[in-house]
Amino acid sequence: MSRYEVNSLLYRLKKDRVFRARFNADPDGALAGLDLTDGERAAFRARDMERINALGGYLHLVMSVPGMAAHVTHTEPE
């Protein structure tokens, strides 16, 4: 597990609009050359934020990357 690589990628996806667009258009190309494990690469390709969080991705990033954020909703009792 490479906590730095996972989180720096999440951070770049959040903050860098051009990179985000490139990832959305060509995930494999955007991820090429990054030091990710096969599991991490697969999780990003699948945009699986729960898996990315389990792999060390910080919660506030997986909940706030534009267009990829995990939106957890739940009904609260009155």
Binding site: K15, R17, H60, S64, V65, P66, G67, A69
Partner: peptide, 8 residues
Amino acid sequence: QDEAEAFD
């Protein structure tokens, strides 16, 4: 934050 979501 462009295209801000959630708490942002």
